[in-house]
Simulated scan of single mutants.
Amino acid sequence: MSNAPPPALVDVQAVTHTHGRGAAAVTVLHEVTVEIGGGVLVALAGRSGSGKSTLCHLVAGVMAPTAGQVRVKGEPATALRDWAGVALAPQRLALVGELTVAENVHLPALLRGTPLDPDLLARMDLERIAQRPARETSLGEQQRTALARALVLGPELAVLDEPTAHQDDGHVEQVVAALRESVGRGTTVLVATHDARLIEVADIVLNLHSGRLLGGGGGPHGNGRGRNG
């Protein structure tokens, strides 16, 4: 009987990424290699400008690396377009302002013809503003709306960029609880964060410094794994 670990859900191999061209080119990631298994909460930590958002965007498949490869479920990340597979909550929240909070949250489910989750709005403290247009809500409420939208299909992978940046303490606790619940249901969550409260509950912490991955470690909750690049 083989004791080999299961294949990585996320496989980042020797990724370098550069923004701009010529004399204006800036390399933001340098030879990053990391593997992440299924059903874990991974915190991507580091100072602003360390490359966290860039790595999130590469894993979510919204752009391709300058060099190296990013694969999710064995496929190039850029080939994946189903939010049940990979969902993204970016810092620029990309909500549809004229739609209500509930419509924004449930949009992926409505487009897919999937039953709605009646409890998700309440878990994210959005129930009382569910019928309000998203553009008429606070930044913190909009951020929770984008987070709920990313989780609504129970995706295999959720990529979240600074999801607690605009939350007060009580709402941070709700966000953390929602992420841990999603992980318990089998979602792998990759979260770029400065928030020590998120880092403390992560199964794996990956540290980026000036675009280089310094290390990572596994916790007791999952089979993710990180290694230096």
Rank of each mutant, 00 (worst) to 15 (best):
M1G: 10
N3C: 12
P5N: 13
P7F: 00
A8Y: 05
A8D: 05
V12D: 00
A14S: 14
V15G: 05
H17N: 10
T18V: 15
H19G: 00
G22P: 03
G22K: 09
A23Q: 15
V26S: 13
V26L: 13
V26D: 10
T27G: 01
L29D: 09
L29M: 14
V34Q: 01
V34Y: 03
V34N: 06
G38K: 07
G39C: 12
S48G: 14
S48F: 06
G51R: 01
L55V: 09
V59P: 01
M63D: 14
P65W: 03
P65T: 06
A67H: 13
Q69C: 10
V72C: 07
V72F: 05
A79L: 09
A79N: 11
L80P: 00
A84V: 04
G85R: 15
G85L: 13
V86T: 05
R92A: 14
L95Y: 01
V96T: 07
V96S: 03
L99G: 06
L99A: 11
A102E: 15
A102Y: 04
E103V: 05
V105Y: 10
L107K: 12
P108S: 09
P108A: 13
L111D: 09
L111V: 14
L111E: 12
L111K: 05
R112E: 13
L116K: 13
D119N: 13
L121C: 00
L121V: 02
A122W: 10
M124Q: 03
L126W: 08
I129D: 04
A130N: 01
Q131M: 11
Q131L: 14
P133Y: 11
P133M: 09
A134V: 02
L139S: 14
G140C: 07
L147S: 03
A148F: 08
V152D: 10
G154F: 00
L157Y: 04
A158D: 10
D161I: 07
P163W: 06
H166M: 03
Q167T: 02
Q167Y: 04
D169A: 15
G170H: 10
V172G: 01
E173L: 10
V175F: 08
V176Y: 02
V176H: 00
V176G: 00
V183L: 10
G184C: 09
T187N: 09
T188Q: 03
L190E: 05
V191R: 07
E200L: 08
V201M: 12
V201A: 12
A202N: 03
A202F: 03
N207I: 07
S210K: 11
G211K: 06
L213W: 05
G218L: 13
G219L: 05
P220G: 15
P220R: 08
R227I: 00
R227S: 15
N228A: 11
N228C: 12
